[in-house]
């Protein structure tokens, strides 16, 4: 593969939605207002039982689903923006075109994930220091974040590939397969919950930790399996884009 042209394809894909978000002032206004409200609320009520910024980590459950949207949009915008004619007639293989989109979506996701984890850590630090709890709580939170990062790292390539595959299948002769894909996804989607239920003792204390007694070995197998599935879904997307696309 010519790394030079791939780098340009990647750069093009990476910038497309970043520019869009960057230009949306209402997005930054919402982000600023939400952050200000959180800082004030944590300043007043933070540290009380039931109002712990650690619980904000639960929003990370939505993150892999958000990545379906990112992957889907990376493909779908070529049709919604009417640029698919330019994209599909570039003198590069479908594999390379789709890989650039997949890689750009993953990097966008990773950056967003790191920003989200960083903001959460800052909020936990802010609350701990403001309410005199020291740095111990923040150190514990880093351990929690690492567990969520692991699950996110396992799920994000799969979810991104799923979003891309769904978008390309929708534009193809294989459109009828889409419900089947969502059914399979719905079944597999809760795999980490199942592992946790299986490995969790009957009576366990309330915690935001995903794996209370260390990371079970099954998780590593699931991680590898999900990456393989992501590769499989990506291959399906390339095949359909090559052979069965309707334009």
């Amino acid at each position: 593969m010519n790394i030079g042209t791939f780098a340009h394809l990647f750069k093009h894909e990476f910038r497309m939605d970043i520019r869009r978000v960057y230009a949306r002032t209402w997005f930054w206004a919402y982000a600023a207002v939400i952050l200000a409200v959180l800082l004030v609320a944590l300043g007043v009520w933070g540290g009380r039982r039931g109002f712990n910024p650690q619980y904000l980590i639960y929003f990370m459950y939505a993150f892999p689903f958000f990545m379906i949207g990112v992957g889907h949009r990376a493909l779908n915008r070529e049709w919604s923006d009417q640029t698919y004619g330019w994209w599909l007639t570039l003198p590069y293989s479908r594999f390379r075109l789709l890989l650039a989109k997949f890689a750009a979506s993953l990097v966008q996701g990773m950056i967003l994930g790191v920003i989200a984890f960083g903001v959460l850590l800052v909020l936990v630090l802010y609350t701990s220091l403001l309410h005199g709890k020291g740095l111990g709580e923040a150190a514990d939170f880093v351990q929690i974040e690492l567990q969520y990062m692991l699950v996110t790292a396992a799920a994000v390539p799969f979810m991104t590939a799923l979003g891309m595959a769904a978008a390309i299948i929708w534009r193809s002769k294989a459109k009828g397969l889409l419900p089947l894909i969502w059914i399979v996804f719905g079944t597999l989607g809760n795999i980490f919950n199942w592992i946790n239920l299986y490995t969790r003792p009957e009576k366990s204390e309330s915690t935001v930790l995903l794996f209370q007694h260390g990371i079970p070995p099954e998780v590593w197998a699931v991680l590898a399996g999900m990456w393989l599935l992501a590769g499989g879904l990506f291959a399906v997307a390339v095949y359909i884009c090559k052979k069965h696309l309707i334009v």
Binding site: T83, T89, P91
Partner: peptide
């Protein structure tokens, strides 16, 4: 094929340019 497109300049029908 995508390879022959290296020799073709194509203006697609009803196309738009990249908005960003």
């Amino acid at each position: 094929s995508w390879k022959t497109n290296a020799s073709i300049a194509y203006l697609p029908d009803r196309a738009r340019w990249f908005g960003g």
